[in-house]
């Protein structure tokens, strides 16, 4: 079973990102969970969202404490305590498995981020993608969630870019205009292509 934790600030779309990831995995025949951790719902407040993905039905209903995948939609969350009403008040690396994959939204290099995450010399993998810039270029708004999903597809192979884009088209074409859908699909693609590993 794969366990994913998303970090962001309210309005950056990490809850939606977890939802899209869950839906995409579900469409490929997996069992999934996608759930947010609701703390204070204020714009800018740190939020977390989670995914579980498995070939078997998922029975546990506790929060994800040892994620193998950590997606950080806002680099300013690194190095700060994320207290906010819920129990785990540690930072973005708290509980992550030894060989966890970290994907950080930043224009900086993976090496810089590895240091910032205090993961130098550790087996964890660190990727970066400038999801904010991509979202501004492609969608015209600072919502880094879809480029992060593209980056996740590239970095992990948990999902394919095609499945991701397909799912988004199917599930959201009712909700959003064609321009918004296309912008997000472009953003996914750019996120997929724009990821750096280090």
């Amino acid at each position: 079973m794969l366990e994913v934790r998303w970090h962001g600030r309210a309005q950056q779309g990490v809850v939606t990102a977890a939802k899209v990831l869950g839906e995409t995995c579900l469409r490929t025949g997996k069992y999934v969970q996608a759930f947010p951790e609701f703390g204070p719902e204020r714009m800018g407040a740190p939020v977390k969202a989670y995914n579980r993905v498995s070939d078997e039905p998922i029975r546990m209903h506790c929060s994800v404490t040892n994620p193998g995948f950590v997606l950080i939609a806002d680099p300013t969350l690194i190095g700060i305590a994320l207290a906010g009403g819920m129990e785990s008040s540690g930072g973005v690396t708290e509980g992550a498995t030894e060989d966890a994959v970290f994907i950080v939204n930043t224009p900086k290099s993976p090496a810089e981020m590895r240091t910032a995450l205090e993961l130098d010399g550790k087996p964890a993998k660190v990727f970066t993608v400038d999801a904010s810039q991509i979202s501004i270029d492609k969608i015209g708004r600072h919502i880094p969630n879809t480029p992060m999903l593209g980056a996740l597809a590239k970095a992990t192979g948990m999902i394919t870019l095609e499945d991701l884009m397909d799912d988004f088209k199917v599930n959201y074409s009712k909700k959003y205009s064609e321009a918004v859908i296309n912008g997000n699909l472009e953003a996914m693609k750019s996120g997929y292509e724009g990821i750096s590993e280090g």
Binding site: K19, E23, L26, V32, A34, P57, I58, H61
Partner: peptide, 12 residues
């Protein structure tokens, strides 16, 4: 059903 745990979680 359980608040948030079930009400807000996407499951198959």
């Amino acid at each position: 059903l359980d608040g948030f745990i079930t009400s807000h979680a996407i499951e198959n």
